[in-house]
Amino acid sequence: MVIVVASGKGGTGKTTVATNLVLNLASHRPVQFLDLDVEEPNAHIFLPPGDWQQIKVGKQIPRVEYDRCTFCGLCAEVCAFNALVVLDDEVLLFPEMCHSCGACIHLCPTAAIFEEEREIGVVEQTEMDNITFHHGKLNVGEVATPEVIAAVKEHLQADGITIMDAPPGTSCSVIESVRGADFCLLVTEPSPLGLSDLKLMVELLELLHLPAGMVINRYQEGLDDVENFAREKGIPVLARIPFDREIAACYSEGRPFVKNLPEYAAVFDDLWNQIEGLVGR
């Protein structure tokens, strides 16, 4: 069972909910946890330390063999991403613009272009107390976020429980993250910005036909806009995490609150039971 935690808006508490859900589950059974926010991975900060293994992530880029090149310019003409420029005696490549489509290689009339691998990031994995954890790190200056996310997801287990923490937003990287999940846990906050980005995220889930449930973080009575929207869309609200100073204090010290404020264990037990019920249906 694969559950992805997403939000639309950044800073609503995706990682907080994901890490606490994982740690609470792991006290009963094994769980896989993937942090897919490869531009700013931070879930590991809240987990017990383990020994890390690293796997490099590469992407294919073109390399020009100059003794075959006639500088005809066709490779640059066919590049949809403007990664190539052909000068009189030189072919300039901007590797971070390349989307590895291979058009330049296939269409070069003198077969002067070859594929080579360029490192764009790394997947790191570790094990700890019932948790198998993977996250990705995109190298600074690189833009191929979905490729590194896909590399993390290659480690998805065939069975058992997997929780994935998605990046914020609703762009390519989020689509790559939520793709293939069985259920999306939406973490939102009862603010106008939270609601605005939540609407975009719900629209995305509708396009992908992905069932969802909602956690309202920093919940305060009387702020009902998010709740009304959930009702309108038929998305069940599975948990309400109050706007609690104690939780903020735990977060700022990198301590998972489910372990430090025992009253919340029941909230996450109940959250998981509801998710299982909805996914099993």
């Binding site: 991403f81 403007n82 420029v85 901007f94 613009m97």
Partner: peptide, 17 residues
Amino acid sequence: EAANDNGAGVKAARILL
């Protein structure tokens, strides 16, 4: 023609070349 493209700067430079 590069004005609204990804990688506008590179394409615009090619137009001038």
